[in-house]
């Protein structure tokens, strides 16, 4: 689960992302590894990693689609937790719930009572875009945008285009230009709005029209899968579709991992999953009962205090996403603690 660069036999996967601008924990590298990394002018030189802001790599806004083939693997949970982690790290985030028929992101974030307008209303001219964005009161740099109300139908003739327009409009939000209004309205929210650093798109399950709509504006993708063969087959198919569509930067998060089952060889290990899909790892999220509780409460897991194992893993995944990093080592097995009294069965 950690990003460790100086492990024996570790291949430096950072070469595949030329836009990577950070080298976290770089001071702990052996010199031979440092020579392999692309030489960038703004390498992190700080010895002290504590309380530093992760370096944002790539061009903003980073449009990331969170997708999977199979349903119920944790796309929405991941979007909520990574989105709020990014917001807590100080980045401006807009999370778009592109799940037209079965939207749930608002529930996970506890914002279900505040969604009055959606993208459909924006397209119809019933409201402006800034009125449809729901700003989280906990972190004002996090905003939610739902694509439609559960019972309304999305005109998919220009659904993909509509999301692209939305991204463009969000991008142009900070510059103060554009806008076709007559200027006599309130214009609330336009002053405090800036171009977001991240636009996270929660993709619906399957490869239906909703999937096509969701992936249209994305530049990179986070593939969520669980270590079971049904999810892996769908994930492989979806990866193929994403690559056909021109999205090359695809990383995966393996969700609901149980190290005890992996140890007993009842579950595929994360490395097995990676071998099957051939994708770099953004994170490994262990199975945690707190996920269900946090979902019921409408309070994402990363906000729990003390942090849980899964919450910490989501935070690490968010950190890697910011820096376009990938995992170099995974936790594969649980080692029992050997104390002095272990000999006596303690």
């Amino acid at each position: 689960m950690l990003s460790l660069y100086n492990l024996p036999g570790t291949t430096n996967l950072k070469l595949q992302f030329p836009s990577t601008t950070h080298l976290r924990h770089s001071t702990t590298f052996p010199k031979k590894n440092l020579t392999q990394t692309p030489s960038k002018s703004h390498i992190t030189k700080s010895l002290l990693q504590w309380n530093r802001k992760p370096q944002l790599a790539g061009e903003t806004p980073r449009v990331v689609v969170v997708t999977s083939g199979k349903g119920g693997v944790g796309k929405t949970t991941t979007t909520a937790n990574i989105g709020l982690s990014l917001a807590r790290l100080g980045f401006s985030v807009v999370a778009i719930d592109a799940d037209v028929g079965l939207r749930n992101l608002d529930l996970l974030l506890g914002l279900e009572n505040r969604v009055n307008y959606t993208v459909v209303e924006v397209l119809n001219g019933d409201c402006r875009l800034d009125q449809a964005l729901v700003r989280d009161k906990r972190w004002s740099n996090f905003e939610l945008l739902c694509i439609s109300k559960p019972r309304s139908k999305l005109p998919i003739g220009f659904g993909g285009k509509a999301l692209t327009w939305l991204v463009e409009a969000l991008k142009a939000r900070g510059d103060g230009t554009g806008g076709t209004g007559n200027g006599n309205g309130s214009g609330s929210g336009s002053n405090s709005s800036v171009c977001p650093d991240f636009i996270l798109i929660d993709c619906p399950a399957g490869i239906d029209a909703g999937f096509i709509t969701a992936i249209t504006p994305a530049n990179e993708a986070v593939l969520i899968t669980t270590p079971d063969i049904t999810a892996l087959r769908d994930a492989d198919r979806v990866t193929g579709l994403l690559e056909c569509d021109g999205i090359r930067d695809i990383k995966m998060i393996v969700n609901r991992v149980r190290t005890d089952m992996i140890k007993g060889e009842d579950m595929m290990s994360v490395l097995d999953v990676q071998e099957m899909l051939g994708l770099p790892l953004l994170g490994v999220i262990p199975e945690d009962s707190e996920v269900i509780r946090s979902t019921n409460r409408g309070y994402p897991l990363v906000l729990n205090k003390p942090p849980t194992l899964a919450g910490l893993a989501f935070e690490q995944a968010a950190w890697r996403l910011v820096e376009q990093d990938s995992m170099q080592a995974v936790m594969v097995e649980e080692e029992p603690k050997r104390g002095f009294f272990s000999f006596f069965g303690g």
Partner: peptide, 13 residues
């Protein structure tokens, strides 16, 4: 992590 000890295995991809 969180009181549990895990062995680390390097990614070989």
């Amino acid at each position: 992590m969180c009181g549990k000890v895990y062995r680390l295995a390097p990614v070989t991809l």
